[in-house]
Design a protein around this nucleic acid. Structure first.
Length: 269
DNA sequence: ATGGTTGCTTGGCAA
């Protein structure tokens, strides 16, 4: 049976409930993982999700910044809300869900953006990002066991491959595509045996983007200077079970859009 | 060209 999971950096879930509702109606994923919810847990708009049939809600939020949430049409159980770099940021949430008689572990991540200056010696935000990626790499507990069904999604804030950005050459010194962070993200993925399912589905050199800057003065769609910052990784056990991956690019053109668009993966379980 | 826009909050970060 098909099981679908969507991931979306929503950049304030309360502000963008109208387009979240549109996604849930139009795409109806079984599970939606949100990042940058920017809302403390006690103010999470649970009612709006419940009304749309997403009655199972887990969150790890904080006031003003960051925050992740996982909402589902079927029961989920919270596994962990992990703290990274000994900083009390809300950047991770893992849950389990049952599908087709099987249990799937779902990780929802929001990796630090890292600021603008790509030098950890002068930019503590970039140093934090690199430390976060190192911690991800070292995390034994994150690595799927043999045969385990697991999916890791989220805004990983790194576009690791040449064709994950509009211009590899022009992006080499731009945070999100510097060699050091691309190598660290790839190393963390390899250490866990995770599969980059978006790139299995759409290999290079085809361009793949999930984010278009707010700052660009030109028309985002015409210029198409995007980056692939959002990812769907699967454990080996699910690697050949992905039947579809859809980047919902049209949501970037919605009224009051997020700068990220939803990515939905369908798994045959 | 060190800009530009957006959100949370009302001054200034973070993205």
């Amino acid at each position: 049976m098909p099981f679908s999971i969507a991931t979306w950096n929503i950049n304030s879930v309360r502000l963008r409930m109208p387009i979240v509702e549109r996604l849930l109606v139009e795409h109806a994923p079984d599970v939606l993982c949100l990042q940058e919810t920017k809302v403390p847990d006690e103010l999470f708009p649970e009612k709006a999700f419940r009304k749309l049939g997403y009655e199972h809600i887990a969150f790890h939020g904080q006031k003003g910044y960051h925050g992740v949430a996982t909402v589902a049409r079927r029961p989920i159980e919270v596994v962990e809300r992990r703290r990274f770099c000994e900083i009390e940021d809300s950047r991770h949430l893992s849950v389990t869900v049952r599908a087709g008689g099987k249990t799937i572990l779902l990780h929802n991540f929001y990796v630090p953006a890292g600021g603008d200056e790509p030098d950890p010696a002068v930019n503590v935000k970039f140093a934090h990002k690199l430390a976060f990626l190192d911690e991800l790499h070292a995390m034994e507990k994150l690595r799927p066991r043999s045969g385990e069904r697991a999916i890791l999604v989220g805004d990983l804030n790194v576009a690791p491959l040449e064709h994950d950005v509009w211009s590899h050459k022009q992006m080499l010194k731009v945070v999100s595509h510097t060699p050091v962070e691309c190598e660290k993200l790839n190393a963390a993925r390899n250490a866990g045996g995770w599969i980059d399912s978006m790139r299995v589905h759409t290999p290079e050199p085809e361009k793949l983007y999930t984010w278009w800057s707010y700052r660009a003065m030109d028309n985002w769609k015409a210029a198409d200077r995007g980056r692939r910052l959002d990812h769907v990784w699967t454990s080996n056990a699910l690697a050949d079970r992905i039947s579809a991956i859809k980047i919902a690019k049209d949501y970037r053109g919605a009224a009051r859009p997020s700068d990220h668009v939803p990515v939905t993966a369908t798994v045959e379980i």
